[in-house]
């Protein structure tokens, strides 16, 4: 399969089950909501060393948030309920509670409850106020600029981490441009995040290392500087590879993000320096979710 002369390899991305939650962060204006969201999702690129993978899903208008202020929706993914609980408490406690004028709400209506304000309320040192409105409980924690309003619990859902595709380009500049186009398109898709810086990762990894202490190491088969050194997966014309990793709340969400991402990256065409699109997997035996690139990119039938 080729799109604009760009080869779509007959392979699949192998992804894994994760636990996820959505949080809605609001503030007096969009700038401060974004400050809090960026702090919360910082250093959350990979569960390998960050504890969770997190990212900004989208910005929200005042009419879309519980308290009628500008907001940001963020998604957090972890490999276990315990770790997700810990990450939520640490990150909201250190990054949202601390941000001027902020408030934090659950962004999912269904799922198992995880403590949010229920844990953070103790910062109020007994001056916190519980407020049950409708069926939901909120905590009002006194802070130096007024009150930090936080929903009692957030909801956890089953999710998928590790959807991906790789852009093989003639030059680093072409790979970067295609990645930027892909991420810009994918950010319009709901229920997904691309957790790496700018949504793009250049240090794709393989499992294991020659050094015993390291669980993962560079994906040498996709390093262009090692083309004649290792059993390279890269054709002669490829000078740079960039990967886009996708975490999502559902198979459908990752399918759609992958589709629009590959379409955007391929729009530069072979003439624009994009050679091929491929995906990372471990042979299909480790992750239960397989995102087959050619199936995803197959023309849609009219219903």
């Amino acid at each position: 399969m080729k799109i604009n002369g760009v080869l779509i390899e007959d392979t699949f991305a192998e992804a894994f089950p994760m636990k996820a939650t959505r949080l809605v962060i609001t503030a007096a204006n969009a700038t401060w909501a974004m400050h809090a969201a960026q702090a919360l999702t910082g250093f959350a690129t990979s569960v390998i060393a960050c504890g969770c993978e997190a990212g900004i899903e989208r910005t929200l208008r005042p009419a879309q948030t519980p308290d009628g202020r500008p907001g940001v929706s963020v998604l957090l993914f972890a490999t276990s309920t315990k770790e997700l609980t810990r990450q939520i408490q640490n990150r909201v406690g250190q990054c949202v509670l601390t941000a001027p004028t902020s408030a934090c709400f659950a962004g999912l209506e269904e799922g198992d409850p995880l403590p949010l304000g229920k844990a953070l309320r103790f910062f109020g040192d007994s001056y916190q106020i519980s407020k049950k409105i409708g069926s939901k409980r909120y905590w009002r924690v006194p802070v130096m600029d007024g009150e930090f309003l936080c929903e009692d619990v957030t909801r956890m859902t089953k999710a998928i981490g590790g959807g991906n595709f790789l852009i093989l380009a003639e030059t680093q500049a072409a790979a970067l441009r295609a990645s930027e186009l892909a991420v810009a398109a994918m950010r319009k898709s709901p229920e997904v995040i691309m957790p790496f810086p700018g949504g793009v990762v250049r240090s794709g990894s393989k499992v294991g290392s020659r050094y015993k202490a390291l669980p993962a190491s560079t994906n040498d088969r996709y390093c262009p500087t090692l083309k004649q050194v290792v059993d390279s997966a890269l054709p002669e014309s490829v000078g740079a590879v960039l990967e886009i990793v996708i975490d999502g709340l559902s198979v459908e969400a990752i399918n759609e993000a992958t589709r629009v991402g590959i379409a955007a990256a391929s729009s530069m065409g072979r003439k624009g320096g994009i050679v091929a699109i491929t995906a990372g997997n471990y042979g299909g035996n480790l992750g239960p979710f397989h995102f087959k690139l050619r199936d995803i990119m197959a023309p849609r039938r009219r219903r």
């Binding site: 609001t26 519980p66 308290d67 009628g68 202020r69 408030a103 407020k131 409105i133 409708g134 909120y138 009002r140 007024g146 009150e147 309003l149």
Partner: peptide, 16 residues
């Protein structure tokens, strides 16, 4: 004098 966010939640709940 304060601006308290929970009042907006209360107002939206009462609107229903």
């Amino acid at each position: 004098v304060h601006e308290l966010s929970f009042i907006t939640l209360l107002m939206r709940h009462l609107e229903t």
